[in-house]
Amino acid sequence: MKKHISHTSPSFPIADLSDLWQQSLKQKYPIYLFLAICFNLIIAPAVYAANAESFTKFQAYALGLLGIVTLAFSIYLFVVMFQPEKF
């Protein structure tokens, strides 16, 4: 059987991208992770600059991320303190 091939020119899929964007906004945890990594772009160089002799760049980024996780956890604990009924 002969396949029918469409020869219409593919237009830029704005609607599809918009849908994807809307979908991605619903995924909270990947967004948080992405923001943490972005934030780490500011923190990690500072960690590296302060201790360049004792850390590799990779270690500075890992430590920066750990610092952000600690800060996030501290914020989470404050949320629990002030809105305990939500947990």
Binding site: S74, L77, F78, V80, M81, P84, F87
Partner: peptide
Amino acid sequence: LTVLLTVLTQ
């Protein structure tokens, strides 16, 4: 009690 434990954790 949850608040107390959270404060201690913090």
